[in-house]
């Protein structure tokens, strides 16, 4: 169908030749690679449930062509423990617990992990709350998520 594509996903180098050129990273991860921890929500970039890291930067996998991230380093929720900030975020969300149904949770974890690792970002709790507004949650009313972020902020300071 098209040229083989090389991806590095959660530290593993892959080469696939069964991808469509128009394929979204979300579908590649979920249905080609079986990484279902990346959740499919709105597919319009409005909910953040599909957030993954591309070269460490939080990215909406529903609005990203897989072809455009060839050669990058992709991290999904299944590999977040390998990111510098990943374990802390998991611990903070788990301790609260900052989740209910859990469907938005991987997206929040990835977005927050990306923010904490971003150069130039200030990491103040108020900034983190402001900069997570791309992720929607319908269960928690966000309060437990804000508490988890606060706990993280304390650790970072």
């Amino acid at each position: 169908m098209s040229q083989p594509i090389r991806l590095t996903v959660n530290g593993t180098d892959l080469e696939r030749s069964d991808l469509d050129d128009a394929e979204r990273l979300l579908d590649t991860l979920r249905w080609r690679l079986g990484l279902k921890g990346t959740k499919e929500g709105c597919r319009t970039g409005d909910c953040g449930a599909c957030t993954v890291l591309v070269d460490g930067e939080s990215t909406l996998s529903c609005l990203t062509l897989t072809r455009e991230v060839e050669g990058t380093r992709i991290t999904t929720i299944e590999g977040v423990r390998g990111e510098p900030a990943g374990p802390n975020v998991l611990t903070a969300f788990g301790a609260e617990p900052a989740l209910q149904c859990g469907y938005c949770t991987p997206g929040f974890v990835m977005a927050l992990t990306g923010l904490l690792q971003e150069e130039g970002s200030t990491h103040r709790t108020s900034n983190l709350v402001d900069e997570l507004e791309g992720n929607l949650c319908r269960c928690t009313g966000y309060r437990s998520i804000i508490r988890a972020i606060g706990a993280l902020g304390d650790e970072l300071r």
Partner: peptide, 22 residues
């Protein structure tokens, strides 16, 4: 962790209806 479903949901291991594939 006060909920036993927390770890699986946090790390993307919980299989939701949208994830089911046979």
């Amino acid at each position: 962790m006060t909920r036993s479903d927390g770890p699986a949901k946090l790390e993307g291991r919980a299989e939701f209806g949208t994830d089911v594939e046979v």
